[in-house]
Amino acid sequence: MPAEPQKLLYAIERELKALSWWESAPPSARALASTEPFCLDTLSFAQWLQFVLLPRMQAMIDAGAPLPNRISLYPMATETFKSLPEDTGALVEAIARLDEALSGQPVRREA
């Protein structure tokens, strides 16, 4: 089990909970079946993280499957969260670190 991605998935979960964005009930099967990137038409980005990214990544880790190495969630996170009143810095940083861990490339952080 890759320790770093696992740790970063937990960090994303922890930050979603700290922001009170963690939801107890999943979205409908129809919402989850969206074919748009990030289920943009049916879910918020925070919902997509919780109900799509985290479970899929965890399933891959549990199965010993190779993890994606071409991933770029940071731009979507910065764009989505930039105008929100909540302090999303720790969540965005955890997402940036996940991108870096999986892609092996540094993420250019916004100033």
Rank of each mutant, 00 (worst) to 15 (best):
residue 82 K to L: 10
residue 17 K to P: 00
residue 24 S to A: 04
residue 37 P to R: 10
residue 95 I to C: 00
residue 51 F to W: 14
residue 33 A to L: 09
residue 12 I to G: 03
residue 68 P to F: 02
residue 24 S to D: 07
residue 76 M to V: 09
residue 72 S to Q: 09
residue 93 E to L: 13
residue 32 L to T: 07
residue 62 D to A: 13
residue 55 P to K: 13
residue 88 T to P: 01
residue 52 V to Q: 12
residue 49 L to V: 03
residue 29 A to Y: 07
residue 85 P to K: 15
residue 33 A to Y: 06
residue 47 Q to G: 09
residue 93 E to K: 10
residue 69 N to M: 05
residue 91 L to T: 01
residue 23 E to G: 05
residue 83 S to L: 11
residue 15 E to T: 02
residue 81 F to R: 09
residue 16 L to V: 05
residue 83 S to R: 15
residue 71 I to Q: 12
residue 96 A to Y: 06
residue 59 A to K: 13
residue 33 A to Q: 14
residue 50 Q to Y: 09
residue 28 S to L: 08
residue 59 A to E: 11
residue 28 S to R: 10
residue 95 I to T: 03
residue 73 L to Y: 10
residue 83 S to N: 14
residue 97 R to E: 09
residue 39 C to N: 15
residue 38 F to W: 14
residue 76 M to K: 11
residue 66 P to A: 15
residue 70 R to G: 01
residue 43 L to C: 03
residue 12 I to Q: 06
residue 91 L to M: 11
residue 26 P to G: 07
residue 72 S to N: 08
residue 90 A to Q: 14
residue 86 E to C: 04
residue 51 F to Y: 12
residue 44 S to W: 04
residue 37 P to G: 07
residue 17 K to Q: 13
residue 90 A to R: 15
residue 81 F to T: 06
residue 22 W to M: 03
residue 78 T to Q: 09
residue 56 R to F: 05
residue 48 W to Y: 14
residue 30 R to Q: 09
residue 63 A to K: 11
residue 32 L to Q: 14
residue 19 L to W: 12
residue 87 D to F: 01
residue 41 D to P: 03
residue 64 G to N: 12
residue 69 N to P: 00
residue 95 I to Y: 03
residue 47 Q to M: 11
residue 20 S to H: 09
residue 42 T to D: 09
residue 85 P to S: 12
residue 98 L to Q: 10
residue 96 A to T: 02
residue 11 A to L: 04
residue 43 L to T: 05
residue 36 E to A: 13
residue 80 T to M: 02
residue 28 S to E: 07
residue 16 L to M: 01
residue 92 V to E: 15
residue 97 R to K: 13
residue 89 G to F: 08
residue 61 I to F: 08
residue 53 L to P: 00
residue 76 M to L: 00
residue 75 P to F: 04
residue 38 F to E: 07
residue 62 D to S: 13
residue 69 N to T: 15
residue 34 S to M: 08
residue 47 Q to W: 02
residue 19 L to C: 08
residue 105 Q to R: 14
residue 15 E to P: 02
residue 97 R to C: 04
residue 60 M to F: 12
residue 59 A to T: 06
residue 81 F to Y: 14
residue 14 R to G: 00
residue 106 P to D: 13
residue 26 P to Y: 02
residue 39 C to A: 15
